[in-house]
Simulated assay, not measured.
Amino acid sequence: MESIKIKPETKKKLTEIAGMLEKKTGKRVSYDDVINYLIEKRSKDRKTAEKLFGIAKGVNLYEELLNGRKEDENSS
């Protein structure tokens, strides 16, 4: 087993998430469980975002937005 250093604020946040997970599952959870939950959640969120925005992959959406606004201004 390894140990990692975290700031007290980070430990507090992990503890809050652990409490939420314990309430949700009815089981005691470890910090390892919390970290794995957060990793899994991020992975799911990323996959969902890729599905939603897959068409725009590799496109700088901010630049596209600015260009679209310039075109709108020029056509007004």
Rank of each mutant, 00 (worst) to 15 (best):
I17M: 01
E16Y: 04
N74W: 12
N74F: 04
L66H: 06
L61T: 09
K27P: 00
E50P: 08
E64C: 04
S30Q: 08
E9R: 11
G58A: 09
I39Q: 10
I35K: 10
A49I: 00
I4T: 12
I17F: 01
Y37G: 07
E40A: 13
S76H: 12
S30P: 08
L61M: 14
F53G: 07
R28G: 04
N60A: 03
K7F: 14
K47D: 15
G54H: 06
I55C: 13
K41A: 05
T25C: 05
A18D: 09
K13R: 06
K23W: 10
K13L: 14
N36V: 08
N67T: 06
L14S: 03
S76P: 04
K23M: 10
E22K: 02
K27I: 01
L14H: 05
A56L: 02
L65P: 06
R46A: 11
K24Y: 02
E2Y: 05
K41R: 14
M1H: 11
D32N: 12
E63D: 11
S75D: 10
I55Q: 11
K70E: 07
K24W: 02
E73A: 02
L66V: 14
R42D: 00
R28M: 05
E22F: 00
K27S: 01
L14K: 02
I35P: 01
E2Q: 06
Y62N: 07
I17E: 04
I6A: 07
K44I: 14
K7H: 11
T10A: 10
Y37R: 04
D32W: 14
Y31G: 01
K44F: 10
E16I: 07
G19V: 03
L61I: 08
T15Q: 05
K44T: 10
M1K: 13
L21S: 00
R42T: 03
T48H: 12
L66M: 11
K7G: 08
K12H: 09
G58K: 13
F53M: 13
K11I: 00
S43L: 14
T25K: 01
K24D: 05
R46F: 13
L61S: 09
K13H: 12
V59E: 13
R46Y: 15
R46D: 13
K7S: 13
K5R: 15
G68R: 00
T15Y: 04
A56Q: 00
T25F: 06
G54R: 07
E22R: 01
V59D: 04
N60I: 05
E40C: 12
E73V: 03
K11F: 02
S43E: 15
K41L: 14
D33W: 01
Y31D: 11
I17P: 00
K5L: 13
D33G: 03
G26K: 13
I17S: 04
N60H: 09
A56P: 00
T25L: 07
I6E: 02
K12S: 14
E50T: 15
K47V: 15
E73G: 02
N67L: 02
L61R: 07
M20A: 01
R28S: 14
R28N: 10
F53N: 13
E73R: 05
E63R: 01
V34C: 00
A49C: 00
K47N: 15
F53E: 10
